[in-house]
């Protein structure tokens, strides 16, 4: 039996969510202030209601520990961790694809030798996770988790399978656009970022309150990878390019020491 056919509560229709999103969009366009990040308070994403702070974040200058970042290396990450299509007895089902790009700090400098982690649903839109109840098939040849270290120019590269869209319980007939979850570290802990990569032209963008929680259209477009025929390879895999920019200037531990030595 399809567990999604037995709602624990009456789910609202998409039209209710869509009209709420339209009202928030109109309010943003009328305000004349440019936003760049998602709103934490975005009621169409129902789970955010009890989970967003009621007060604004407190502005603070980073202390020494916050100006540094955890260090990861070859000991942490096997080069094969960047290929989500291997490590199982057979090849996974779906569109083989390569996703690559650069991690940059707020000054546009590459973030070198730093950790990037991804996780995702399989081609059918199912996560290999015990809490995913979507009645789509698991793929015995696909787990959907990968890691890599950026190179000396800030490049990351993963080979994977394009994930499928999947349903969730925010409202009735709610579907998430296909996405890869990305977790990124910078050169300062303050740059820590977890986000999602989307694929161009997804028809679910306009209906999805998580994507639309970034109310600025240019800002949310920064989460959409670009199809890149130079990344696509002959008779093998399609390719997408997506750069990640972290907040604020990066700072090496050495910079931080120099600044402290300057009488800070």
């Amino acid at each position: 039996m399809n567990p999604l056919a037995v709602p624990a509560r009456e789910l609202e229709p998409q039209s209710v969510i869509s009209s709420e999103m339209a009202a928030l969009d109109a309010g943003y366009r009328g305000a004349g202030v440019t936003e760049t990040q998602p709103r934490l308070d975005y009621p169409p994403y129902r789970s955010s209601l009890a989970r967003h702070p009621g007060r604004a974040a407190y502005d603070v200058d980073p202390e020494t520990i916050e100006r540094c970042a955890p260090c990861f290396g070859a000991r942490d990450v096997d080069p094969l961790d960047a290929d989500l299509t291997v490590g199982h007895p057979g090849a996974p089902i779906g569109e083989r694809t390569v996703v690559t790009g650069r991690v940059l700090d707020g000054d546009g400098r590459p973030v070198r030798r730093q950790l990037v982690e991804i996780w995702q649903a399989n081609a059918a839109g199912r996560y290999a996770h015990g809490r995913d109840q979507h009645p789509a098939p698991l793929d015995p040849n696909f787990t959907g988790a990968g890691r890599c270290l950026t190179d000396d120019d800030g490049w990351y590269r993963f080979q994977t399978i394009k994930p499928g869209p999947y349903p969730w319980r925010n409202h009735r007939n709610a579907w998430r656009p296909a996405h890869l979850h990305f977790s990124v570290f910078g050169t300062a802990f303050t740059q820590r970022l977890v986000t999602q990569l989307y694929f161009p032209g997804d028809p679910l963008f306009a209906l999805d309150p998580i994507y639309q929680s970034i109310v600025d259209p240019r800002a949310r477009d920064r989460l959409v990878a670009a199809y890149d025929h130079d990344v696509t390879s002959h008779e093998w895999a399609t390719g997408y390019r997506w750069d990640i920019v972290l907040t604020g200037p990066g700072q090496t531990p050495l910079d931080a020491e120099a600044q402290d030595g300057g009488g800070a």
């Binding site: 994403y45 707020g106 982690e117 996560y127 809490r131 977890v194 986000t195 750069d243 920019v245």
Partner: peptide
């Protein structure tokens, strides 16, 4: 020009798969 930061998104319910 200073590049603009990539927006964040929720970690979602299945982060254990990639982060734990």
């Amino acid at each position: 020009m200073t590049p603009i930061a990539t927006p964040g998104q929720t970690v979602g319910p299945f982060f254990h798969l990639g982060l734990s």
